[in-house]
Design a protein around this nucleic acid. Structure first.
Length: 775
DNA sequence: CCAAAGATTGTCACA
DNA sequence: CAATCTTTGG
């Protein structure tokens, strides 16, 4: 988009024509002060909806206006999307070219760029792979298996989380092993060997030239700490540093920006402690204190006027957040009108909740002539989206879901990407394991295990081992050897094209020669067709990439594409943004956004606040901040809902309304009288929905890939777990009728032995879904 | 060696 | 329920 729209031109010349700083009149006093205080350390405490982005935008413009070159500015945002939006807004003020020259992006993307450039200083090469969470976990799993540890005790994701939080607190593998605190913690939780796993994990990542998300930050910090000249180079480059969403930064991120800014001290952090919702990821509120300590000449600005929401919404949010003990006192107020009261309704089931919301969206849109994009439906967990989607489809309301399994998580996409990864970095073990026998080429488990063991013994990557197979005798049959060589030739062949061919051409060759694409083409099942289409979509994206970035340095290469998508999330994929759709997303994903109409759903104990937050006060307070974020997304109308009965893991679960609902100032809330049992009620609980009689608009980007409706085909009532007794006759979808012989264990994990016609089975009750037998 | 059936297990949020 | 791991039969 190099051609500016007419309005943009007008705006930008409007800005420039002003000789002085008259544009500051568009800001309130505090905002203007925050914009013009460009020198020295600054902290902006920005309440929800207080015009934070506007301040940041003008501040950057102001700095440039004073003659600073844009490339001396580093602006760190929380998401790629935020970075892109800010770039666009700045472009409108100072022009496209200058805006693009600013170093603007997430911590991860900016520092991975720097790491690629300086990789040799820390023993990596510039083509290092970025391991996503799946890769990292898979590697950890391998290590746990190699160490012959009990995988019940050492659960992959727990180990991963432990290592990740260590990294976020600047604890390297070496430090970890030496730290009594961490070691004791592991002993206490009966996992004394995590230090060893961490060590091996770090070693393996280095061996295969890979970094996980946390490494991107940890290694950057190490780079700066250990190479003074490199640090100095970037200190000189980044004369002005801005950090958005400062409350969500962790210790490593803080350490990095501190090092970078300690010379010029022109650092501006913007945040709101009331919106800190990423402590689970290592975000550290203490950073605010650290900052005050490390930059004593700090100036603070408090943006407290909310321009976004009605009085009712602001007041409700304030009353909730006041229940937190740990918080900076702040007085968020608004000059906006009082607005409607907050609506609150109870639904009998998650399906009904969805139905009522869909209905309200429809009515409000019609009555108030709104666009669908004016509505957002928020929830605590991604799993909740299903019932909501279903309801929206029934009413033909187009929607778009953010988050959940993103496009790049799909199996077929990951398969093809694994080929690309191997071509770029042949030592990428995780990618190699994924594709060495996919599509199947006769290199089976036995053969692979031999290679893996040999690679491990020699401390080399799998690819290196393959390249040297003829020099060792590890008992691989000539037949297998032949197939390995075929594979090797194919990859080498691709690799040779890497530098000569553009991303799209190479990707096409890989997709077809690996037979990935042709195999999928042959599969005519609905899933197969959808997978084929997904691959096509990926190829299209690559095509767009290689055509669109023609001017930038590595812009047409496959490596460039992979770099771009490695750090992308589903929220960044906004190609359908211009379409008029209702938005569905988690509260986390909604941070920083605003909508005229907001629905916050699933306001139930155990869900929001999450069950897992019950143990600690801190966690509960984080949930409350999350709720605060949810409330403050709304501009005009806020609606809260909860369901008395919700399906969890395929079992209906009763729940109480969330405690948070009782924390809202009652004066702001209006109880909705629910209408009489709706159509959906009857339909959903008793008869299977007939797909034929309903018309569906399936939004292009939604998961049309999956069959829409998988309601149980049985109409028999489900027996509540508590009513199961020994000797009782039950009915099971697959096994038929049976009799309970024994019941063991305690309720959440209770099992039963049941005699069916074809033998006895042990079933975990919470999954079994036992029905009343037909009489 | 491999696909398909069977069994098990898990999910809070995310770059 | 859905995703993943394990077993099984060809």
């Amino acid at each position: 988009m190099f051609i500016k729209s007419a309005t943009e031109l007008v705006k930008s010349s409007y800005f420039w024509e002003k000789s002085g700083v008259e544009y500051l009149q568009e800001l309130n006093d505090v905002q203007a002060q925050a914009v013009t205080a460009t020198e020295g350390p600054v902290m902006i405490i920005a309440g929800a909806g207080s015009g934070k982005t506007r301040v940041l935008t003008y501040r950057i413009a102001h700095i440039i206006r004073q003659g600073i070159e844009p490339y001396h500015i580093l602006a760190l945002t929380f998401t790629n999307k935020a970075a892109r939006e800010m770039t666009n807004r700045i472009a409108r003020v100072i022009g496209e070219v200058d805006a693009r020259a600013i170093w603007m992006g997430t911590f991860h993307s900016i520092f991975s760029r720097i790491l690629r450039f300086e990789s040799d200083r820390i023993g990596f090469s510039s083509n290092f792979t970025i391991y996503d969470t799946d890769d990292a976990k898979s590697l950890i799993k391998t290590i746990i298996a190699e160490m012959k540890l009990d995988d019940k005790k050492y659960q992959t994701s727990q180990v991963y989380n432990r290592i990740s939080s260590a990294k976020n607190q600047l604890i390297s593998a070496t430090k970890y092993a030496e730290s009594p605190e961490w070691i004791e913690g592991d002993k206490f939780s009966n996992r004394p060997l995590i230090a060893e796993i961490y060590k091996r994990y770090a070693h393996r990542c280095a061996r295969v030239n890979a970094m996980d998300f946390d490494d991107l930050l940890l290694r950057t910090n190490q780079l700066f700490a250990s190479c003074p000249n490199i640090l100095e180079k970037y200190q000189q480059r980044f004369k002005y540093i801005l950090v958005d969403e400062f409350q969500d930064t962790n210790l490593v991120q803080y350490a990095i920006i501190k090092q970078l800014s300690i010379v010029h001290k022109n650092i501006c952090v913007v945040g709101d402690d009331a919106q800190s919702i990423y402590a689970f990821r290592g975000a550290n509120i203490e950073n605010i204190l650290n900052f005050e300590h490390d930059f004593p000449t700090l100036r603070k600005f408090f943006l407290e006027q909310n321009y976004r929401s009605t009085q009712n919404i602001v007041e409700a949010a304030n009353s909730v957040i006041a229940k937190n003990t740990r918080q900076h006192k702040k007085n968020v107020w608004t000059g906006n009108q009082e607005g409607n009261k907050i609506k609150l309704f109870k639904a009998t089931s998650d399906n009904e909740e969805g139905f009522l919301i869909a209905q309200q969206v429809f009515e409000n849109k019609m009555n108030h002539h709104r666009l669908y994009t004016d509505f957002a439906i928020l929830y605590r967990t991604n799993a909740q989206s299903r019932a909501l989607e279903e309801a929206l489809r029934r009413l033909n309301i187009p929607y778009r879901i953010y988050g959940g399994t993103s496009f790049y998580q799909r199996k077929e996409i990951k398969d093809l990407l694994a080929y690309f990864r191997i071509i770029i970095n042949p030592n990428d073990d995780e990618a190699l394991k994924r594709i060495i026998n996919f599509p199947t080429r006769g290199i089976g488990k036995t053969t692979l295990d031999k290679i893996l063991e040999a690679a491990s013994d020699n401390d080399v990557s799998i690819w290196t081992m393959i390249e040297n197979l003829q020099n060792v005798s590890i008992g691989i049959s000539p037949a297998a050897m032949f197939k390995i060589n075929e594979f090797r030739k194919m990859i080498r062949d691709f690799s040779m094209k890497l530098t000569q061919t553009n991303a799209f051409d190479l990707a096409t060759v890989v997709a077809s020669q690996s037979t990935l694409l042709t195999d999928l083409y042959k599969d005519k099942s609905p899933e197969g067709v959808s997978r084929y289409e997904n691959i096509q979509e990926l190829l299209n994206a690559i095509k767009e990439f290689s055509e669109g970035h023609g001017t930038e340095a590595n812009g047409t290469s496959l490596a460039g594409f992979m770099e771009e998508i490695a750090l992308m999330t589903d929220a960044d994929n906004d190609k359908d943004q211009d379409k008029d759709r209702v938005v569905l997303m988690t509260v986390h994903a909604a941070k920083g956004l605003e909508f005229p109409y907001v629905f916050v759903t699933g306001m139930e104990e155990g869900l929001f606040p999450s069950q897992m937050s019950y143990q600690s006060r801190d966690d509960l307070e984080e949930e409350r901040r999350l709720f605060y974020v949810a409330l403050t997304r709304a501009m005009q109308q806020l609606t809260l809902s909860y369901a008395a009965n919700r399906f969890k893991y395929g079992q209906p679960v009763f729940s109480e309304p969330s405690r948070f609902l009782f924390e809202i100032n009652p004066a702001c809330v209006e109880m909705q009288i629910r209408k009489q049992p709706s159509v959906s009620d009857k339909e959903q609980s008793h008869q299977p929905i007939s797909l034929k009689t309903k018309r569906y608009i399936i939004p292009a980007n939604s998961a049309l890939k999956k069959p829409v409706n998988k309601l149980s085909h049985s109409s028999l009532p489900i027996i509540p777990l508590s009513e199961l007794k020994i000797g009782m006759d039950v009915f099971h979808e697959r096994f038929g009728e049976g009799t309970i012989l024994t019941l063991d264990g305690i309720l959440p994990n209770q099992t039963a032995t049941i005699r069916f016609d074809d033998g006895e089975k042990r079933l975990l009750l919470k999954y079994a879904k036992l029905l009343m037998p037909q009489k």
